[in-house]
């Protein structure tokens, strides 16, 4: 086959899109070289290279405490949101329920309401109950924010699953629970794992609600970043950001790759 010469228009389109993509990606990844600077202050490009800001990060008790707290919240959120969301998705897709439109609107609401509104509302209520700055308070808040994504992801998987499989299991003598654990659960595990990864990243990256729910001593990594960005330009922030970015991208890329291999 002979290739047609690209037209001037398509060359221009390509050049435009290439530029847009570069501008889209570069500021996202610029924290990586910034974190590797050997200088005392942030700047780009760095004049010298060093890992010293990572050393600074890992030896700073406050950063480590915030990081571990964020990881703890994210892990707990993942467990709670995945279980609650999977149950709900099961009811929505495979249950004999009425008013699906309302149930969906109800479930997706935390996705639609601006996070600043959620943050203020939760702060006002949680503060009165002594839940601000506690693990429980954060897990409740992040689970609520992650639930819509879990429900959507798991129900998409369940919709793709032929309901005849569960019916076949029942027909062959399995109880409801046997049918679920032997057939439905193993077959929707990839979707549930994806949902769990979403929940983890949503919790880890969440900044607005975390900002309001954090206390003076108990704060998430994002709250710590937020504070420090506002009044210092120390490269240690770039190191912490880089770690956050790397974890997020690694988890999401793993999901994407897993999804592609399943689709194939």
């Amino acid at each position: 086959m002979r290739a047609r010469a690209p037209s001037l228009g398509s060359v221009a389109l390509w050049a435009l899109v290439g530029t847009i993509l570069a501008v889209l990606v570069l500021p996202t990844l610029i924290v990586v070289p910034m974190s590797l600077t050997g200088d005392q202050y942030l700047g780009f490009p760095p004049r010298s290279w060093s890992l010293k800001w990572y050393t600074a990060y890992f030896s700073d008790a406050e950063w480590i405490r915030a990081t571990l707290f964020s990881l703890e919240i994210a892990a707990l959120t993942t467990v709670v949101a995945t279980i609650l969301g999977t149950c709900a998705a099961l009811a929505i897709v495979r249950g004999d329920v009425k008013g699906l439109g309302w149930i969906n609107a109800f479930t997706l609401a935390p996705m639609i309401v601006p996070h600043i509104v959620v943050a203020v509302a939760m702060y006002l209520t949680f503060a009165r109950l002594g839940l601000t700055g506690t693990v429980l308070g954060f897990v409740i808040a992040h689970t609520i924010l992650a639930l819509p994504y879990v429900v959507l992801t798991v129900s998409a998987t369940l919709y793709r699953l032929d309901p005849a499989l569960e019916m076949a299991a029942l027909n062959l003598g399995a109880s409801r629970l046997q049918a679920f654990f032997q057939v439905t659960l193993p077959l929707s595990l990839p979707g549930i794992a994806t949902a769990a990864a979403f929940a983890f990243i949503i919790s880890l990256d969440e900044a607005v609600v975390s900002f309001f729910l954090s206390g003076v001593h108990v704060k998430t990594l994002t709250r710590k970043l937020f504070e420090d960005i506002d009044y210092s330009l120390s490269p240690v922030i770039a190191s912490a950001s880089t770690l956050l970015v790397v974890v997020s991208i690694a988890v999401m890329a793993a999901i994407e790759l897993a999804r592609r291999s399943v689709k194939r």
């Binding site: 005849a164 019916m167 076949a168 077959l187």
Partner: peptide, 12 residues
């Protein structure tokens, strides 16, 4: 016994 339209064999 039942044979389903698309067989409903458990793929796993």
């Amino acid at each position: 016994g039942m044979v389903f339209q698309r067989y409903a064999l458990f793929p796993h």
